[in-house]
Design a binder for these strands. Structure first.
Length: 838
RNA sequence: GCCGAAGUGGCGGAAUUGGCAGACGCGACGGUCUCAAAAACCGUUGAGCAUUAGGCUCAUGUGGGUUCGAGUCCCACCUUCGGCACCA
């Protein structure tokens, strides 16, 4: 008789033992293949929620599996500890962000330990500690030295609720990514990182990465590389006055029937004629007031006003009216466009609204090749119903000397002509913008810059780092950094001339912290309290040499165009600094899906469908919660939490418990037959093949299903003569080893109770024998005219001829064939026979 | 609007990539145990028809197509989710 499965006791026991024996200690072993396995670090919001469990426990199973396969796995963890919630808590509850954050970390650390993951706590990093963020400042200075950090006065996205500017990546659908408030534009001087310098490399690097296509596509779209031509348009009647337009379609230049400037375009004031001034100014004013979200929602209806001025189309010398319209934006291209209504949907809508002509200048190749002008003007007339935007297989018409040119020749020749005659140049345009780093908040890394009345912007000398975030500050959300009102922080003497100067009071975007944390983990708080120099390396280089880069990264897809883009950028800069010798920070990426509430909706307090994992860990134990989360469905798809579903998984663990420890109900006497032994071993090795393959591909749901099926098989076999044989022991051992990565506690406990050496997590992954896994006989479906009419049992090696003979000999098959002549027999060895008789 | 992913029992989801649809689990129903209930265990469970035996028919969002054979491939459409969006 044995005691019942009691997860509370055994989980606590083993977690302590693992910690005591340093089971997950990092060791740089040159004889083993290193495997840096990383899961996105959590924000210390207060409690570990189900989403954290869903992200981290399958990740842990993946890491443990890699380890059993003989890799030297390192699985570090830390906390992304700067950020707005801490500051908001300070404002609401009058508790200091530091205290709030550290208390949360304390609690979450405990919860994380209950998960039983193989985290290496010795290298934990907390980003809000000076020993960490001093390196943010050090990097900032480095970026500044390299010309990658600069100050720029421009309209920037601003969240009026969070009271801070945002990077473009943090604006989702015109709203703040954090709080959902529609953002507004503000003209501010802000620090930016020149990520656009790496646009091409960020794009090309994607091809080499073993990342989900989804993420790669999102990054490609975000970077938005477009090849085109920029050229000059003269304003009629203003000698020498011109503006530049960018187009990806120079081949349509003869179709230009108007030009548009963005309302904010600097030339608007100059060219507007007196009789249109009032109207234009009113329009500009209105455009300024609109938030980007409003502009977006009104996107359907084209608006604009005529400036009274005309520009000359350089291609044909014709004047075209210049409008201003808010569908042209100042920060895209040159802030001015040529309007080609026949071949651009938006221009088409605009022209229709303002009654502008719509000349056709490209037609499909087939229309052109028919050779007669009538056909392609017919085609053109049809195109007039709707703008024709294709470029592959089109030919230029009504385009003077260029008429008859086909894409891509049309592009090239017009581009050359514009280069020669309209100050044109081929240009690549990107959607990507430089990364806006400044935040007007307290709880972040101070930007290490000084504003001197004599010297202008002066960097803090490296040896003066870190610029400490003062502990006392007023947390009043004013839209300006709280540091601005902290006299002790603000005032400083200029390191260059000694004059009274003041510090930069903005802090850094917290995505700065996570852009390099995979390097910080190597040696957290490296040189904390020491004097820094420009020649430093922010981590122990020897350790980095061994572990970098990250081999496997897991985390949510919501970071596709934020963190995952920034950290790639950072790594490329680090490489240019000579700190690393690779181009990409994370070689493989897996995005888990989202865990939903029992109602299938996103968990949220307002919906009242939040599942607290602690309750379930309390009731069923961590192993059950882990296994259930893996069992729900494909890890990358997520799915709803099911309170009944977790019961089923828990029952499975109980079944394993009694399978391994309890005596059979009826002791079968005598020796097992050879066949019984073979069947058992076959089940063992077939399951092992399946489970190994599933772990490798993070298909945890079918992995657990296979373990359940195997357990069911073993439960039946237990009551037969095979119980207690070598084959039986092999089966039980293999079962526990296969469970170990996913359910680390129960497998360790049962392993110990079988008298095996500590620890199961130090064992090698068992080797599957494909010979033993082979089926002895297979059931073949026999179809007559595509419908299964009989089944025959044969050896898997049975030849095609034999299968055909056996199938035709079958009585039931004969009945269905009747007297119809057999026309064809399809034989798929090992699968089926299909007899066509008609 | 453009791009991408998905749509399978009452539910979560399987299906070696063109070869027996529904693995595994939940739920439901029936049974064993029990004075009873819970737990546990053992059956049954896509729908319909037929149940005297063998069975038969229909089923993977909809409609077509290719094929001996389609959840899987092709075309059109519907729905859901995600990304991008006056990006010139």
């Amino acid at each position: 008789m044995t005691d019942r499965y009691d997860p509370q006791t055994i989980e606590k026991k083993w977690q302590e033992r693992w910690a005591e024996t340093g089971l997950y200690k990092r060791v740089e072993d040159p004889n083993k293949e290193k495997w840096y396995f990383l899961t996105m670090l959590p924000y210390p919001s207060g409690d570990l929620h189900t989403g954290h469990w869903y992200a981290m426990s399958p990740s842990d199973a993946g890491a443990r599996f890699a380890r059993m396969q003989g890799k030297n796995v390192w699985f570090p963890i830390g906390f992304d500890a700067f950020g707005l919630p801490a500051e908001n808590a300070a404002i609401r509850h009058n508790i200091h962000p530091y205290k709030w954050t550290m208390a949360n970390i304390e609690r979450m650390r405990g919860q994380l330990k209950q998960m039983g993951a193989m985290f290496d706590w010795e290298h934990e990093a907390i980003t809000c500690l000076p020993g960490y963020y001093q390196w943010n400042q050090w990097f900032f200075l480095k970026f500044y030295d390299m010309g990658l950090a600069y100050r720029d006065k421009a309209p920037v996205e601003f969240c009026p609720n969070c009271n801070t500017t945002l990077a473009r990546e943090q604006v989702w659908d015109g709203k703040c990514e954090r709080c959902g408030t529609p953002i507004i534009m503000k003209e501010l001087t802000q620090w930016k990182f020149r990520i656009t310098k790496y646009a091409d490399e960020l794009l090309e690097g994607l091809d080499k990465l073993d990342w989900p296509e989804r993420v790669k596509t999102m990054q490609r779209n975000w970077i938005g590389r477009k090849e085109g031509v920029e050229f000059e348009m003269q304003v009629q009647g203003h000698e020498g006055l011109h503006f530049r337009v960018f187009t990806t379609r120079p081949d349509t230049v003869f179709g230009m029937s108007f030009a548009i400037l963005a309302p904010e375009h600097p030339l608007v004031q100059t060219i507007t004629t007196p009789e249109h001034r009032a109207e234009v100014e009113a329009y500009v004013e209105e455009a300024r007031r609109k938030t980007p979200l409003m502009r977006q929602m009104e996107a359907r209806e084209k608006t604009g006003v005529f400036t009274g001025a005309y520009a000359i189309n350089p291609a044909n010398g014709q004047p075209v009216p210049i409008f201003i319209a808010d569908y042209v934006m100042m920060d895209v291209g040159t802030g001015a466009i040529m309007g080609v209504p026949a071949h651009d949907q938006r221009d088409f809508e605009f022209a229709r609204k303002f009654g502008l002509p719509t000349p056709i200048v490209i037609v499909p190749k087939e229309a052109w090749e028919s050779g007669d002008e009538y056909t392609w003007s017919e085609e053109a007339a049809r195109a007039l119903e709707r703008a024709l935007e294709g470029k592959e297989g089109t030919v230029m018409v009504n385009s003077g000397p260029f008429t008859g040119l086909a894409w891509p020749e049309s592009f090239n020749q017009v581009a050359e002509w514009l280069e020669a005659h309209a100050a044109g140049e081929r240009k690549v345009n990107y959607r990507l913008r430089d990364w806006l780093i400044s935040r007007q908040r307290y709880w972040g890394t101070p930007i290490p810059m000084i504003h001197c009345p004599n010297c202008g912007v002066v960097p803090v000398p490296y040896e003066d780092l870190p610029v400490l975030l003062p502990e006392d500050a007023e947390f009043k959300p004013t839209g300006e950094s709280p540091l601005k009102y902290h006299e002790g922080f603000l005032h400083v003497t200029c390191p260059q001339c000694g004059a009274d100067a003041h510090r930069e009071t903005d802090t850094m975007d917290t995505f700065m912290d996570s852009s390099w944390y995979q390097y910080a983990y190597l040696s957290p708080y490296w040189k904390d309290g020491e004097t820094l120099s420009p020649d430093d390396v922010p981590w122990d280089q020897a350790v980095g040499e061994y572990w970098l880069p990250v081999d496997q990264y897991t985390g949510g897809i919501e970071h596709a165009t934020m963190h995952l883009l920034y950290t790639r950028f950072f790594t490329k800069v680090l490489r240019d600094m000579g700190l690393v010798d690779f181009d990409e920070p994370m070689l493989r990426l897996f995005n888990q899906g989202m865990i939903l509430g029992p109602d299938g909706e996103k968990m949220s307090k307002s919906r009242g469908n939040v599942v607290n994992p602690d309750d379930y860990v309390q009731k069923y134990g961590a192993d059950t919660v882990r296994a259930f989360l893996m069992f729900i469905g494909p890890w990358d798809e997520g799915g709803p939490w099911s309170p009944q579903g977790i019961e089923g998984v828990h029952r499975f663990l109980h079944r394993v418990w009694s399978l391994v420890l309890d005596e059979p109900k009826k002791q079968a006497k005598g020796e097992p037959s050879e066949k019984q032994v073979r069947n058992l071993r076959r089940a063992t090795h077939q399951t092992l093949i399946k489970v190994t393959n599933d772990y490798e591909n993070f298909k945890f749901n079918t992995m657990i299903a296979a373990l359940m099926a195997f357990t069911n098989t073993l439960n039946a076999a237990k009551e037969t003569e095979v119980y207690g044989t070598d084959a039986w022991e092999e089966a039980i051992e293999t079962l526990l080893l296969m469970m170990a990565p996913a359910m680390p506690h129960i497998s360790e406990e049962l392993w110990a109770r079988l008298g095996k050496p500590y620890s199961i997590h130090l064992q090698s992954w068992p080797q599957a024998d494909p010979e033993l896994a082979k089926e002895e006989e297979v059931e073949i479906a026999v179809q007559v005219n595509g419908k299964v009419r009989a089944r025959i049992t044969v050896s898997p090696e049975a030849s095609k001829e034999e299968l055909e003979r056996l199938a035709l000999a079958n009585e039931r098959v004969q009945k269905w064939i009747g007297d119809k002549p057999v026309r064809k027999v399809i034989v798929v060895p090992g699968r089926l026979v299909n007899i066509i008789a008609k």
